[in-house]
Design a protein around this nucleic acid. Structure first.
Length: 205
DNA sequence: CGAGTTTGACCGGCGC
DNA sequence: GCGCCGGTCAAACTCG
């Protein structure tokens, strides 16, 4: 499938041809696609066979918690997408309550991006098909149950797979800064603006 | 000394 | 029912 064509109306896709990283050198934007619908059936499993070896993107309803100074290449491996689908299906009620999940793949020199929130590490595990350890984080804010998983891509350690789960019930400490950054980058980069806003905006009503 | 990290143990879900 | 695996817990440890 050619990712240069938006494969699903539920996703917004950003290809690296049009997408330049306005942020730090540590992150490399390539392919971005966000699901705006809920449910496993909307998971993206779009594999770009021609360019990036793992240009598969998946996310469930975006949580909006990843606003901050970090930025990401948002692609996701097929196995991760499958996992998300499975786990969601098995715990439908809970995941609905948890709200939303988004996963993205980032080419980054550092493991953990600063997304503006304060995270507390609560676990680390080696997982199947990945020689690298997976790290588990919780939002350290009182009463906020948002979780985050971070792992190096087993196929290409240059990429970091980050999965956010849940919705923050508080503002990001870097909210103002991040909004400034978004607004300042509002030239002809179309969807990037809306993407970054969607990253910033927390949906809970 | 408090906050955060590490790490082994434990638990629950799922496939066989 | 059993074993595998991912996710979480919690005590010990580290760091500022």
């Amino acid at each position: 499938m050619n990712l240069s064509e938006n494969p699903s109306p539920n996703f917004t896709f950003f290809s690296d041809e049009n997408f330049t990283n306005p942020f730090m050198d540590n992150f490399d934007f390539s392919n971005l696609m966000f699901d705006v619908d809920e449910g496993c059936n909307t998971l993206g499993l779009f594999h770009d066979e021609t360019s990036s070896p793992t240009s598969i993107v998946s996310s469930e309803t975006f949580t909006g918690e990843s606003g901050g100074s970090g930025s990401a290449t948002t692609t996701l491996s097929k196995k991760e997408s499958t996992f998300d689908c499975k786990s969601r299906g098995s715990k439908d009620g809970e995941t609905k309550e948890m709200g939303h999940r988004v996963a993205f793949r980032t080419r980054s020199k550092i493991d953990v991006m600063d997304d503006g929130y304060k995270w507390r590490k609560y676990g680390k595990k080696s997982v199947k098909n990945n020689t690298n350890k997976r790290n588990y984080y919780k939002c350290s804010s009182d009463g906020c149950m948002v979780k985050k998983r971070v792992e190096r891509d087993g196929e290409d350690a240059a990429y970091v797979i980050t999965t956010y789960e849940g919705v923050h019930n508080h503002e990001s400490p870097s909210h103002v800064y991040y909004n400034d950054m978004v607004l300042s980058y509002d030239h002809d980069n179309w969807n990037q603006h809306s993407l970054l806003q969607s990253i910033q905006i927390s949906p809970p009503s």
